[in-house]
Design a protein around this nucleic acid. Structure first.
Lengths: 210, 210
DNA sequence: CCACTAATTGACCGGTCGGCCAGTTAATTG
DNA sequence: CAATTAACTGGCCGACCGGTCAATTAGTGG
């Protein structure tokens, strides 16, 4: 049997696989400690190549950092775009499913959450630029649903998107923070409660019953 | 007239003022670049003292970082606790005012937002521990309002707090991100829309009409 | 005025940083 | 089987890191 390269020093050369191993190690470390606190030497060690080789493939630490962020965004955008385009129109259940999907995605990709958080703090703008398109898509969906009387019309559709995106993102981003709060529930329990408030809050306002 | 010490090298010694100047410079730099990317030399330069003096007053970089976080939390907790305790009972308007106050506080203290964000990414737990008490206070308020039939009772009070805290915090934390989204509104506009959804979503569910 | 303490300084340390460069080694190609 | 190209290595560089230390200076109490 032929051993598919593991962490052996690559008896045969495979530059693409090497690039990938470097990228993967960089992801792990950047996600964990942020850009400034990671040394090229650590990335080299973890990926099993020399520091020089990283420079050969990526040029500089900063370029590697950028490549890492772009890889993460591709993973993120791929799934999101799929979710957003596969269904035709928007109703309440579709929005619910959208939120749940978004939440579950973040839950199963904590590395993306953390990487983006580091990027935000560095005032990185490329992530925001990149998903501006996704947001426009989602906002258009909401607007349609508003026109059809499914959601209240007195709120900015972009703010609807923003509200749930922010909530899901920050829930995971600062989990170390509020997991210490007495009485707080599990991921699922929080999601359920948020959905109750969010979706009911979006219902069209009946003419005041009084 | 006697000049109150400015950035002159302190013709007269005032250890407390020195401590404060160091802390202030550290705050500026840590807020901007995070812990790892700030050098003691930079803090020394900005505060107009020598690096050794910082060690004399704070011991180590890590200790200075911790002192900085604690100073920020004191500022945060002071105002929050005041807000939470001054009113006796909770009704819808009180919650609205609570959210607005929280939002405005973060808006006018971006340094606190960023410092806490760095702390979260480092998996710092002391911030979360510290405000667990504040959350308990707020959750108790919500619970009372639920008992009085002002808010729906089928959601965890802690999750209500969490939802708006998360939303306000992340709104400012990732502003560089979603400020690039087409059609997004100002701070005030977003806050208004969020409050509409949030407060209406918290209204007790009428027995389904027909 | 003289010890005494504490604030403050500048020089210095070993270690690590990102990056570079001169090589060696493995595939490719003609 | 050369010749060429690109992957890959090890060693080295100057810069900078956090921290230490001995010396100096300014207030303080006897």
């Amino acid at each position: 049997m032929q051993t598919p390269k593991k962490n052996s020093p690559a008896n045969t050369r495979d530059p693409e696989a090497t690039r990938q191993r470097i990228l993967s190690a960089a992801m792990d470390l950047f996600v964990e400690k942020g850009y400034a606190d990671v040394a090229m030497r650590q990335i080299a060690e973890r990926s099993g190549v020399t520091k020089s080789l990283i420079h050969h493939h990526f040029g500089s630490k900063e370029a590697l950092w950028k490549a890492t962020k772009e890889a993460a965004f591709e993973l993120y955008a791929g799934l999101q775009r799929q979710d957003l385009t596969e269904a035709e129109q928007s109703d309440e259940d579709l929005l619910r499913r959208g939120v749940v999907n978004y939440f579950k995605f973040l839950q199963s990709h904590p590395e993306v959450v953390r990487l983006f958080a580091w990027a935000h703090l560095e005032r990185d703008t490329c992530v925001g630029e990149n998903d501006a398109g996704l947001v426009r898509l989602g906002a258009e969906r909401i607007r349609q649903a508003q026109e059809n009387g499914i959601f209240r019309s007195d709120v900015n559709p972009v703010h609807v998107i923003t509200t749930f995106v922010i909530t899901c993102t920050h829930w995971f981003e600062a989990q170390s923070h509020h997991s210490q709060w007495e009485g707080i529930g599990s991921n699922q329990e929080f999601l359920d409660d948020f959905l109750k408030i969010f979706l009911d809050g979006l219902k069209p306002r009946h003419a005041p019953a009084h």
